[in-house]
């Protein structure tokens, strides 16, 4: 009996070893606007590859600071293209791994149905008290919102009504709770499978602001992590692309 249990224990050990070798874990830092699609993509990725993806959501600026100070992330899915490029220049990311995984679209959104019209004319009427935007200093969607208002010639008039979220998730929360009547959010936050999930929205034409290119990059820590490479590959495949599209990204 002892011999037998020894063999089965050895077998179990070997099986665990083998499993460990092919199924790795990847720690992913994900920009807040990409939260919903990434949760779906990660589930598909785990099923398809057997690897595990651990997701952390937050603002790109915060992730940058954390990564520069040794945060244990293997992959960054940023909300811009500048941060991954900067990390690469500074040697904190793997050169040549960078690519654009999505181009963000923005929506002017209100939690109440019928509040925002299809042309965004509500902005000119200015009958609201608070307009939520992401902090333009920190968040690409905030910068795009300011640029859009500037092109519409409404920036000076509406600036006093700004309330700023620290990132796009908090901006959404201000509008979702009705504390701000409307706000500029990521289209991915209010759209699922191509339709608006609640409230009313104006999808801001992409010509009104510089394209929000969102780049992914493998970080120095993930250099030899097979799961990191597999995830980057998976993001380019049809299954992932379909999910990204369904959330309104280009």
């Amino acid at each position: 009996m002892p011999a037998r249990s020894f063999i089965s224990l050895t077998g179990l050990f070997l099986a665990l070893m083998a499993h460990g070798a092919c199924a790795a874990e990847v720690q992913v830092a994900v920009a807040s606007n990409f939260t919903a699609p990434m949760q779906k993509i990660a589930a598909g990725f785990e099923q398809a590859t057997g690897h595990r993806a651990k997701l952390a959501f937050g603002s790109t600026g915060k992730f940058y600071a954390q990564i520069r100070h040794g945060a244990p992330f293997d992959v960054l899915l940023a909300a811009d293209d500048e941060t991954p490029a900067r990390l690469e220049r500074e040697g904190a990311a793997v050169a040549g791994s960078r690519f654009t995984y999505s181009i963000g679209r923005m929506a002017l959104w209100s939690a109440s149905p019928g509040y925002v019209d299809g042309q965004g004319a509500v902005l000119k009427q200015g009958t609201f008290k608070h307009l939520a935007i992401a902090n333009p200093k920190l968040a690409p969607y905030g910068a795009a919102a300011v640029e859009t208002l500037d092109r519409l010639g409404l920036l000076a008039a509406l600036r006093p009504k700004f309330v700023q979220g620290e990132n796009i998730a908090q901006t959404f929360q201000f509008v979702r709770t009705g504390n701000a009547e409307l706000g500029f959010v990521a289209l991915s936050q209010v759209v699922e499978d191509g339709t608006l999930t609640r409230g009313s929205a104006w999808v801001v034409p992409s010509g009104l602001h510089a394209p929000i290119r969102q780049d992914a990059v493998i970080l120095a820590r993930g250099k030899d992590n097979p799961a990191a490479r597999a995830l980057m590959k998976y993001l380019k495949q049809d299954q992932a692309r379909a999910i990204i599209k369904a959330y309104g990204y280009n």
Binding site: G61, Y64, V163, A180
Partner: peptide, 25 residues
């Protein structure tokens, strides 16, 4: 941070201002 909306002269207190500075590097 959660209920202020980061408005200069109204709700942007020192701790939030420090957070902004850190985030903006």
């Amino acid at each position: 941070l959660m209920i202020g909306g980061n408005i200069p002269d109204k709700t942007r207190v020192v701790s939030v201002q420090i957070y902004d500075h850190v985030e903006a590097l």
